[in-house]
Each structure stands twice: as structure tokens, then as C-alpha cells.
Nucleic acid binder design. Structure first.
Lengths: 138, 138
DNA sequence: GGAAACGATACGCACATGCGTATGATTTGT
DNA sequence: ACAAATCATACGCATGTGCGTATCGTTTCC
């Protein structure tokens, strides 16, 4: 796959390589890829309700419940009733969750740095920008 | 996910967006993503044996059999005994397979072109190059 | 020439995934 | 006030996926 495949194949290849590299790091910190996705999304602060959270990380909403249960059991997040809409629960990182996310994020950055070795800062910037464009274009 | 997520998340997002865009095109041509991956790999000529083919597209080798069965039934590929190793079967594109692959590849390029709209040729080149680097760096 | 490795194939298992559906509590529209 | 929509949650199902394992024919190595 060194050649001019379609972009989807290239993205899949790069994504798989990165996921494989990051997998052991996540495992060391006792998190699954999906659990980390939840922590990262919460840390960023964009999603509040569980439905929004599921959509943001593209995870099945019926399975998010068990995923959150696990994170709650580990004391990384809390599920509090939303005062303005008592149907909804607000999911929030606990201090422990913030700390755990920070540690894992840093460890992941080290791995990424290793994978990116040889690419100039300018290339990295273009890469991120182009990927973001692809992900958000209709 | 417009921000500085980890690269894996960015690749996943871009890959998913591309796959979603390409899905309908593949469906129109009566091919699944995996079937297209087989055709593309064979068209490129890199893999010959079924085991190598499975590894190249990262598909389960025990499921590749049924996948190939479908393609053979449609007359797109053939499974011929390898004269130099009678354990192995050489999988080859038929003329119909070559034609079908070409048609789908062209249709996919149109879709990619639409997704890439707004990115300069230079950016596209850097993107492909960087993704290839990521996919092939250990 | 016999043992070990190998390729294709088959089968089963555990698990993940996506989808539909249901229900209870709550909000919203009229 | 009543109907419809919404959110979290639960359950089940069909399918996809990876993994181990077995068999059969064939090749390789000693």
C-alpha cells in the first residue's frame, strides 16, 4: 500500500497504524479506545448529554451506557441530573478523570511523535488541517 | 472534532467521512468495500496467493474465501492452481473484473475530488505522502 | 523418505456492532 | 390539560470480526 490508493484506503492504513501504536499505551493506563474517546471529548467540554456524547464519538448510544458505567465505577466520570432538564444526565470528568486523561494524552503524544518522526512541522500542520477538512466536509 | 485531537482520531474521522461518501458509489456498482479492496489489490498486481491477499487488505483469511467465492460467482476474478506450488491458488482479475474495477475507481475518484475541493494540489500531495509515511512507519 | 511447515478451506466461538423496539420519566407544543 | 417529542435505559437480534482449531493436499528440509 505504498502507492496511490484511494484516500479512504490511505486514511484507513494510517489510522490503523496509529491505533495499533496507541493500543498498548491505552492498555497500560487501563483504558479502551472508546473509554479514551469519552474522556477526551469530556475534557474538551463539547458534549454534555449522553446522546450528544454518543454521536460525537460515533458510538452506539445503547452501548454508551455500559461504557459510562465502567468509567463511573472507576471514578473517572460522574453522571449528575441536569437541573435544567431532568430527563437528561450531565456527564462530567472527576478530578481523577481529568488527571487520567491528561496522563494518557501525554503518553499518546509521545507515541505520535515517534510515528511522525521525519515529517517537518509544516507537513504536520498541513496534515492535520487537511484531515480536519476531510472529516468536516459535508 | 474540529480541533487538535490526537492524530488517530483525525484519521478515523477523515476515513469514516470518506468511507461514507464512497459507500453509495460502491453500492451502485454492486461491490462491498472489501470486494473493492480485493479488486484494487489485484489490479495493482501486488498479491497473488490468498493468504497474501488477506494480509494486504487486513481481512480475516478465513472469511476471504467466501469473499472470493462471491467475486468468482460474478465473474470478476478467477482462482487458478499455481503451477509452481500446487497448494496455492493464484487469484486473478478477469477482463470483466478489470473493467469493473476501473469503472468503480473512476467513480470513487470523482467522489474524492468533491471531498478534496478547496485543497491545493500541493496540500493534496503532502497529505498523501504523510499518510503513506504514517501507514508504513513501523 | 519421513517429519515438519505451509496454503486453502471449513467450522465454531466469543465478542463488538448497529438497529429496532420498549418503557418510564420528563419536557414541549397547542 | 393532553398529545407528542425527548432522554436515559434496557433488551434482543442479525451480522461482522478476530481467533483458534482441524483437515487435506502439497512442499521443504534434513
Amino acid at each position: 500500500m505504498t502507492e496511490d490508493d484511494d484516500l479512504a484506503a490511505l486514511c484507513a492504513g494510517a489510522g490503523r497504524a496509529l491505533a495499533e501504536a496507541e493500543g498498548p499505551v491505552l492498555a497500560e493506563h487501563g483504558l479502551s479506545m472508546w473509554q479514551y474517546a469519552v474522556l477526551a471529548t469530556l475534557a474538551h467540554g463539547s458534549a454534555s448529554s449522553q446522546l450528544a456524547l454518543a454521536q460525537e464519538i460515533h458510538y452506539d448510544k445503547t452501548r454508551l451506557i455500559a461504557l459510562l458505567d465502567g468509567l463511573v465505577a472507576e471514578g473517572l466520570v460522574t453522571r449528575a441530573p441536569d437541573p435544567s432538564d431532568r430527563r437528561a444526565r450531565i456527564v462530567r470528568l472527576t478530578p481523577a478523570g481529568i488527571q487520567r486523561h491528561g496522563a494518557v494524552r501525554d503518553a499518546i503524544r509521545v507515541v505520535e511523535e515517534r510515528k511522525l518522526a521525519g515529517l517537518s512541522p509544516e507537513v504536520r500542520r498541513v496534515l492535520r488541517s487537511a484531515l480536519t477538512h476531510l472529516a468536516n466536509t459535508d
